[in-house]
Amino acid sequence: MKTSFVLGALTVAGLAAGAAAAGTLDDVKARGTLNCGVSTGLVGFAAPNASGEWEGFDVGLCRAVAAAVLGDSNAVEFIPTTGKTRFTALASGEVDLLARNTTWTFSRDVDLKFEFTGVNYYDGQGFMVPTELGVSSAKELDGATVCIQTGTTTELNLADFFRSNNMNYEPVPIETNAEAQQQYLAGACDVYTTDASGLAATRATFENPGAHVVLPEIISKEPLGPLVRHGDNNWGDIVRWTLNALITAEELGVTSANMAEMASGTNNPEINRLLGTEGTLGEMLGLDAEWAQRALAVGGNYGELFEANIGASTPIGLARGLNAQWKNGGLLYSPPFR
């Protein structure tokens, strides 16, 4: 009786504390820094440079949100999270925003009580094999040994793919991407499978990239996006619309170069609404009118961020593919700023 009372009291206290901490925006403003969960290191998406500053595509989103909310793209505390710690870090309030190439799935959204605020990279699982193997399709991989990172969705996708095609495979479980590269190059496995972006980045590091080929099949949908906790819709809106602002800016041709000029007023009302010279969109978010301008000033629009971190001009050299604007045959389609 007594124990249950204590437990009940604790639960009430926990709920009260949860309710009290609902205002993430206020917390962030009071703290003066945004706690952003990123990967401990993923090529092109998040990595510390030689002077200890974080760089990458996911990092760019964190900085954009920080600039929109706090006016300073450096007011971000980057908190490296592993695949195992990332969700607890977000659920416990250690981070305000998780931008860690996390796949948007039903159970993560619903069961883990998170809110995915959009997709900043459409990925999919692919296969890489040595050219000398003479394989041209993933359907020919029956009996292959496959290097696979454990504890990820890729592991489950792989099992599904082979089962639905009535093929067998021998898994070689590995922990990190770096280890996978070594194992694959040493011939411990015939095939390396992970997200296609990761395969491209890995292949680019090989001494002889031409000796390896990424197979055309993409066996899964991996929409990677930023996520926040359930229950704080205002904060979710800020993250969602910061991402949408980056995407819309590219669609409308607003870049970091011409933004200052456009901010003085244009003929296009949507650009004006986006940049805050018309309407009260920023106010509705609980921010000021220039929030999107500041977000865009950090690393430019979505396309600029893409090109600078993972695009064709970088060693990773990813094509836009699915991540092109909808007008160019991609999937990027931001709701209108109205």
């Binding site: 990967s39 401990t40 290191g41 993923l42 090529v43 092109g44 998406f45 998040a46 990595a47 510390p48 440079n49 760089e55 990458g56 908190i79 490296p80 999270t81 592993t82 195992k84 710690t85 870090a89 990190t176 991407n177 770096a178 590269q181 980045a201 890995t202 680019a204 590091t205 090989f206 970088t314 060693p315 990773i316």
Partner: peptide, 21 residues
Amino acid sequence: IGLMDPLGLSQGIRANAEWNG
């Protein structure tokens, strides 16, 4: 658990485009 001890940092260093691999 995501602390940047030498091993954690080595992963971060490998994640730079110039030192990947």
